[in-house]
Design a binder for these strands. Structure first.
Lengths: 338, 338
DNA sequence: GTGAAAGCGCTAACAG
DNA sequence: CTGTTAGCGCTTTCAC
C-alpha cells in the first residue's frame, strides 16, 4: 500500500481518456456530464490505482480549499474546547477540515486571519468574545463567510450563534426570587465582552420584572472572567450591605465568590446563595456544588458549522441563532432563612 | 487596503525584473543569490504593492506547506487543550500553522492522517493515548515526521514527550507513606493506555521501594479515565479490606473516588486519603481540594513542537523527552489517624 | 547575479 | 458526452 503518489493524468492515461474526463467523473457535482458506463470504469480504475486527489492543486485552480478557520482567544479555556469539538464534528462530516488558530492579542489575531485567508479558507468561525472587533472587519474585507460563536455582531451584519443570555439571567433571578431572595447582587463580566454586557442587562431586566431594583452597589463589574477577578469583585460586594444572593456572570466568577465568602467567614448557601453561568465541567463537584445556567457549547459549535456551510453553499443571508439555556439547581442556592 | 490580490509576476513586472528574481529576493534562504541593492528594491516594492505570497501555489511546487497536523482523541478533554495551546505557541512563533483534527475512533483517525498527508502537512503530532497504534504506522507510511505527546512508542522508533509517570507515582506514594499510610490502593487507568500502564507500574515499584506489597485486590483497573469509571472502581476497592489511602491514576478517577467515599459514608481525608494525577483545572476547589501530581501539559505541547520542527529541519533522530512532574499537596491527604 | 523555460496537479472555458 | 487548451502562482533547474 501507499505506493508512489498517482496523479489524475496517470489514471487518464491508463484509461485512455483525457484527464478532464477523469476529473469530471470523480467530482459528484459534474459526474452527470459523463456517461454512466465511463464513470464506473473511471472510478474503478482510480480506486484500484490508489488515486488520491491533490487538494493543493485543486485549491490553486479553484481558489477554494474545503478548509475552515476557527479563531479562539484561548484554546485552553474549557468553554472553547467543546465549541471547537462541535464545530469539527459538523465540518468533518460534511467533508471540510478545520484549522484552529489561537491568539490572545488582537494584532496577532488579525495576522492570523490574513494568513488563513491566504491559505484560502472557505470560511471563518470567530469565537473571540469582544464586541465590535477589528478581527471581524478583517474577515469581511477578505470577503470570507464568517460566523460568530458566543457573541453577536452589534452592527447586525454577521451570522452568530449565542445562548440566550437574558433568558439565562431570568432563570437565575427567578429561581432566587422563588426561594425568597430579594437583595440580590450581580458580578458582571467586562462590558466589552458580549456576554458580560448582555448578562448584565438581563440581570437588571429580570430584577425589574420582579419589581426589584438592582441597587447602585449591587452590581460590580469584574475585570476579567476569572476566578481571581470574581474573588476581588465579591470582596467589594461584601463590603457594602450584604446581599442574600449573588448572581455571577459565569462559573469562574462564581467560584471566586465562593472563595470570597469563605474568606469572610460566611457560608454558602447558609448565608449567601450563589449562581454561576455555563455549567462548566466539575462545578458539580466543588463545594457546594454550583447552581448554574447550562449552555451547550458543543451544540453552539455544531450549529455554527451548519450555518457557515449553508452560507458558503447558498450565500445565505445572515442568521442569528439563539440557543436556550437551562437552569441547573444544585446546592449553592437555597431558601432564604426565615 | 486589501486591494486586489497581487502576484509575484506583477511585482516583477513593476520592477522590470524576472519573477524568479523576486522570488529569490523575498526568500531568506535564497536571498544571498541576489544583489543587496536589488533585494532592497524588491522588498520595498513588494511591500508597497501589498504583495502576499500565495502559500497554495508554493506548496504545489515545493510539496511543503508550513502546516502541522495534530490529532487528538477528544479536544474537549481538559488535558488536551493546553497541549494544543502550547504546541500552537511554538509553531506559530516559528511561522508554522496548526491543523487540529479530532477523532475518537481509530478508522476516522487514520482517514484524517491520510487527509492531512494529502494536504501536505510537514509533520504530525499525535496526542492519542493508545499504545501501539495503527495511526502511528500510517504516519510512518506517509513518511511524515511525527511526535507523540503524552505517550511513548513501545517500539522505540518515534520521538515523544511524556511526563515521568513512574516518578509521579513515586511522589504520590512517598508522600502517603511519609504521612504514615501503609495500606494504599491504586485505581489504574486502562492498560491499553500508555499512562494507565506506566502509572500502574510506577505504583507497584514505589510501593516495593518502601517494602510494601500492593496486594492482589489493592489495584483495580478502571474501564476509562472518567469520573464514573473511578466511582465504580472505588466501590470495588471499598468492598474489600479498606485501605487508608487511594492513589488514582488521574484526577477524574480521583474525583470518582471522592464520590464513592461520600456514598459509603466515609470522609476524605479523615477516613481515607486520596491523590489524583494531572492537576487539572478546578481540582483545587473540589471538596476536599485534591492532592495531586502536576504535569505541565502546556510545556509538553511546546516541547513537542520544538522537537517536531527540529526533526523537520535537520531530520534529527528520535528524541524522547521526559518532563518532571511535581507533587501538589492539598487537603485530600493527611497523616493517618494514630 | 539574473533571466528563461518548464512544470507542480488540477479544473474551467470552449469546442465539437 | 468528451477532448483541447490554457492557465492558477510559485519555484527550480539550467543558461548566460
Amino acid at each position: 500500500m501507499a505506493r508512489r503518489k498517482v496523479s489524475l493524468a496517470e489514471v487518464a492515461r491508463q484509461l485512455g481518456v483525457h484527464p478532464s474526463t477523469v476529473s469530471r467523473a470523480l467530482d459528484p457535482a459534474r459526474r452527470s456530464l459523463i456517461g454512466d458506463e465511463l464513470v464506473g470504469r473511471v472510478r474503478a480504475v482510480a480506486n484500484q490505482m490508489g488515486y488520491r486527489p491533490d487538494p493543493i492543486a485543486a485549491s490553486l485552480r479553484t481558489r477554494r480549499s474545503r478548509l475552515i478557520g476557527a479563531l479562539v482567544p484561548d484554546i485552553a479555556n474549557p468553554v472553547f474546547s467543546p465549541i471547537i469539538g462541535g464545530l469539527e464534528e459538523t465540518l468533518t462530516s460534511a467533508g471540510w477540515s478545520l484549522i484552529v488558530a489561537n491568539a490572545a492579542d488582537e494584532a496577532r489575531r488579525i495576522a492570523l486571519v490574513d494568513e488563513l485567508a491566504a491559505r484560502r479558507v472557505d470560511g471563518m468561525v470567530l469565537a473571540t468574545a469582544k464586541r465590535d472587533d477589528p478581527v471581524l472587519r478583517r474577515c469581511r474585507s477578505h470577503r470570507l463567510p464568517t460566523v460568530l460563536v458566543n457573541r453577536r455582531d452589534d452592527r447586525g451584519l454577521t451570522s452568530s450563534v449565542v445562548s440566550d443570555d437574558r433568558l439565562g439571567m431570568h432563570l437565575a433571578v427567578d429561581h432566587l426570587v422563588a426561594l425568597g431572595h430579594r437583595r440580590i447582587a450581580h458580578i458582571a463580566g467586562p462590558a466589552f465582552l458580549s456576554t458580560g454586557h448582555l448578562r448584565r442587562e438581563g440581570f437588571v431586566a429580570a430584577m425589574a420584572a420582579h419589581g426589584l431594583r438592582a441597587g447602585e452597589r449591587a452590581i460590580v463589574e469584574a475585570s476579567a472572567l476569572t476566578r481571581d477577578a470574581g474573588l476581588i469583585a465579591a470582596r467589594e460586594i461584601l463590603r457594602s450591605e450584604r446581599p442574600t444572593a449573588i448572581v455571577a456572570a459565569n462559573d469562574l466568577l462564581a467560584l471566586g465568590v465562593l472563595l470570597a465568602l469563605d474568606e469572610a467567614g460566611l457560608s454558602c448557601p447558609a448565608d449567601v446563595s450563589v449562581t454561576g453561568h455555563n455549567d462548566m465541567p466539575l462545578v458539580d463537584q466543588v463545594t457546594p456544588p454550583l447552581t448554574t445556567i447550562r449552555i451547550s457549547h458543543q451544540e453552539m459549535g455544531r450549529e455554527s458549522g451548519r450555518i457557515l456551510l449553508g452560507q458558503i453553499a447558498h450565500a445565505q443571508k445572515r442568521i442569528e441563532r439563539v440557543l436556550e439555556p437551562q437552569l441547573v439547581v444544585r446546592r449553592s442556592t437555597r431558601p432564604i432563612a426565615a
